[in-house]
Amino acid sequence: MKLEVSGLNSFYGQAHILFDVAFEVGEGEVVALLGRNGAGKSTSFRSVAGLVPQRTGKVVFEGEDVSRLPPYEIARRGLGYVPEDRRIFTELTVEENFEVGRQEPRPGVATWTPERIYKLFPNLGEMRKRAGGHMSGGEQQMLTIGRTLMGNPSLVLLDEPSEGLAPKIVEQMAEAIMTMKREGLSIIISEQNLHFAKLISDRAYIIEKGRIRFSGTMGELEANPEIRDAYLAV
């Protein structure tokens, strides 16, 4: 397994957000974590990335327990995190945004350069010197993914990559994710948009009120409309 999360409990202050959350991502797999807003998707990702100080449980990445490490150490091991609201550096140019994300090449993992990312997202190649703040939402989403790829991760947490984007841009995003998968990356996305998740994922988990309620292939989810309706309320 690329990533094994088990017994994850997270808190914000007194609020208990995650309850014994467990999920796995296999080598080269695309997994979707589905759930409505506030179900605990972002908190799960933030916990794995080391951004939730109050948490217990195990996060095993490539066989190593990283749950006690600070965020930058987790990132340096090749676990990339793309936050839900993009959070690009608006004052920095596209190239400078990439520079912040740059890390040394990692053996056995695809090495990314700005040039390779411009191939993945041709729009970005036309605006290398442009400040992040002067880009459209779709371009910013591409930039935030590219920035994380510059760290040469072997697994990427993509938090709601489709949120707030035009349907056409979301379709492009789906293609880019499939390309990343072909490069050998393992990917876990959090989503509310079931249509989008179906386009790209191999397997899915459903999270609701901080607990994992379903785990299975996309086909199994399709075959279980009552589960879908209960937790996703489509």
Binding site: S162, A166, P167, V170, L199
Partner: peptide
């Protein structure tokens, strides 16, 4: 904008 309509 709408693309191929895969998303609705």
């Amino acid at each position: 904008y709408l693309g191929e309509g895969l998303l609705y």
